[in-house]
Amino acid sequence: MIDIFLLEAILNGILLGGVLALLALGLNIVFGVIDVVWICYAELIMFGMYGNYVLHKDLGWPLLLAFAVCVVVVAVLGVLLHWLVIRPVLGGAPINQLLVTGGVLTFMQALATLVFGIEFRNLGISMPSLELGEIFLSQSRIWACGVSLVAVALLWLFLKKTYLGTAIRAISQDREIMPLMGVKPGRIYLITSAIGGGLAGLAACLLVLQYDVHPAIGLTFGPITFMVCVMGGLGNLLGGFLAAFIFAQFIQVGGFYFELEWGYVFAFCFFIAMMFWRPQGLLGKRA
């Protein structure tokens, strides 16, 4: 007979996996197409969370309207990030592209501190827990997991079925040849940045239901997002999806047996071990 609390941890892990999968999705598509890691990705999400807070709590907008506006605003932030910061260093040393977004991370985190202070803020919405026998599951997590599955499916359809999606996939496969075929990489990059930002905005809407927002929140789930992407094989959407669920189990079940930090320690150790076993990612092919 399996321990009921262990079962609860495993189910929670699956739900967390859905959330992590969504977090990783935006970062992954940006990396896959533009070949740049947005180190400040989690800070975009943080801005989205503050956006929700301001619109819903301070200005009293209906929640769903606030959500929609935030997704658009963060998508615009993604475009600005690409246009103002990434584009000038695209031709430079690859590591500079990663470091420059590190600067944006510092900037956004400090700006949030400057504007909102270091207090924890929340929307004050608490959804009841779902009861399955003796198991309690957070309803907001179920929502988050469901929405993220839908988002993954829609993105997949977009990439496979539309002309634009095909162009995006083509660019990600060969950055040198595609311009010769009449695809403008600059435009594709901007569209991809908008999609990446929009996904970060969506993640923000789902996270703000579960977590308090504060300026350093990006540092708490930023690293795990990078790990998920890298373990899935940076740019590999399906691999990232799988890695998200594996990671989530490490965190929840590890946290169940020990303490929450230990769950993270195990997950990160597992990540490093995986890097050596399959540096190309879970589903990647060896170059």
């Binding site: 470091l99 900037f107 400090a110 400057l114």
Partner: peptide, 14 residues
């Protein structure tokens, strides 16, 4: 004024 130095750092780093 918390965060002012970080704001300037970050901008300068970029």
């Amino acid at each position: 004024v918390h965060g002012l130095d970080g704001t300037i750092y970050g901008l300068m780093l970029v």
